[in-house]
Design a binder for these strands. Structure first.
Length: 444
DNA sequence: TCTCTGCTCAC
DNA sequence: CAAGTGAGCAGAGAC
């Protein structure tokens, strides 16, 4: 571990003390009150030095690459700006949602019944604009402009500015006492929301590189961990069976919901089934599902009805989660981590609805957080014990990223897989997918 | 300078 | 009414 400058380790160790204190002040009283000190002493406290070391380890960024893309984006943004001004017939600040709304809905009048936000402005979010694409050529240009400027300001320009001059690496901060569910959060910079969805955004991941010639990046992801946790918590026979048989869970869901053999599931059907599975994790309604899947409300309702017929245990589990939270005033994870839900018995149905969705989601999201935290602690212990040069550098909720020393790659992979798979045994298989690459994109 | 809003990136 | 958890950016307005 000696390549990490000792001053930096000291700096972060000093921060360790602060974090420890902060945790004692913030978390312990909470957990004591909740009778879950075990979680505090056996997970949160041992995690402190792990996070501290990850922060000190840092991540190497190919700054030149980012700067080059930034310049390209800068030129493209300028071009799109001019096109937008021409289409609008006047220049304005495209980055101002207020001005943009007035141009779109008052000057160009592209939608008679434009939606407003709660403050009375016109809503111009991505979903709104997607539905107006066919109305005017300016809409696509606005979306292009938004995407380019988002990537440029948030990543391309921000990340190089945060490189530590002492070692040329980026050091995020992990916050252990921020989220309601037990997840970590990351800031300064947030390395848990690096783009991956679009081809253009994905390129940014190419700039996350190993720290030296002798290293490669190893990414290890839990596969479908939240759905496996639902299967475990609900003990729904059909979902448990799907996982035990190693099925592609979204295809298996599609086969059941659309009444076709698994091999004949179309991409469209799989994608809809996937949306339902995600919706389940979030406690969605039929209306919400219809919106997302661009189906009529009754079609969506049919799909949900079929889903709960096939996976009746999931429905029961959801009802049970809500009932338990109403009774106790909190929802809890596999390890007893609690999320208090003061609104769970509210007479206001909107407010209560939110709390009910929290009651469904918190045990799932939180158990997944419990699991990866345990894995991180035992992987860190093992790296220390074996005096390995490989370093754990990132955690992104269901993924761990390592700067893997080439001489240790096989050993590291076996440690990581073993510790992740066995962190918190479930009644369905826990599967970890691992890949290596010359950058974060290739490691996926 | 600070805070809020709207938007958009991730899991 | 209507899908969970976060962070950061630019604009806009209060002070």
């Amino acid at each position: 571990m000696r390549e990490v400058p000792i001053e930096l380790v000291k700096e972060y160790a000093a921060e360790d003390a602060d974090i420890t204190l902060q945790l004692y002040e913030k978390l312990l009283p909470l957990l004591k009150e909740n009778g879950v000190e075990k979680l505090f002493y056996e997970i949160e406290m041992p995690l402190v030095p792990v996070l501290s070391r990850m922060e000190a380890n840092g991540v190497k960024i190919d700054t030149q690459n980012l700067q080059q893309i930034s310049e390209e984006f800068g030129r493209e943004i300028h071009k799109v700006e001019e096109e937008i001004y021409t289409l609008a017939g006047m220049p304005f600040n495209i980055a101002s949602p207020k001005q943009l709304g007035e141009i779109l809905f008052e000057r160009l009048k592209i939608d008679e019944k434009a939606k407003k936000t709660k403050t009375g402005q016109y809503a111009t979010g991505e979903e709104v604009l997607q539905k107006l694409l066919h109305k005017h050529a300016i809409v696509q240009k606005i979306l292009d402009y938004r995407s380019l400027t988002k990537l440029k300001s948030t990543y391309l320009d921000a990340l190089p500015a945060l490189v530590n001059p002492k070692d040329g690496l980026i050091h995020t901060s992990y916050n252990q006492a921020v989220t309601a569910t037990g997840r970590l959060s990351s800031n300064n910079p947030n390395l848990q929301n690096i783009p991956v969805r679009t081809a253009q955004g994905r390129e940014i991941r190419r700039a996350f590189v190993p720290r030296g010639e002798a290293y490669t990046l190893l990414a290890a992801d839990y596969s479908q961990i939240e759905l496996r946790i639902i299967a475990h918590l609900s003990q729904d026979p059909a979902m448990v069976a799907d996982f035990n048989l190693g099925h592609d869970i979204h295809a298996a869901t599609a086969a059941k919901v659309f009444h076709v053999p698994m091999e004949q599931v179309t991409k469209e059907q799989r994608s809809r089934a996937k949306a339902v599975n995600f919706g389940i994790i979030y406690g969605m309604s039929a209306f919400g599902l219809a919106e997302r899947m661009e189906l009529s409300r009754s079609e969506a309702a049919d799909i949900i009805k079929k889903y709960f017929e096939e996976y009746a245990g999931i429905k029961e589990y959801m009802n049970r989660s809500i009932a338990l939270a109403k009774d106790r005033g909190y929802a809890e994870t596999i390890l007893g981590r609690r999320r208090y839900l003061r609104d769970i018995n509210s007479s206001n149905s909107v407010v209560r609805g939110f709390a009910e969705r929290n009651a469904i989601n918190a045990p799932i999201q939180g158990s997944s957080a419990d699991m990866i935290k345990i894995a991180m602690i035992s992987i860190h212990e093992e790296l220390q014990r074996l005096n390995m040069q490989s370093k754990m550098i990132l955690q992104v909720h269901d993924e761990l990223v390592f700067d893997a020393h080439l001489d240790e790659l096989d050993e590291l992979k076996s440690i990581v897989e073993n510790k992740m798979v066995n962190a918190l045994p479930l009644s369905v298989p826990v599967v970890v997918e691992m890949n290596t690459g010359a950058n974060w994109l290739e490691a996926h």
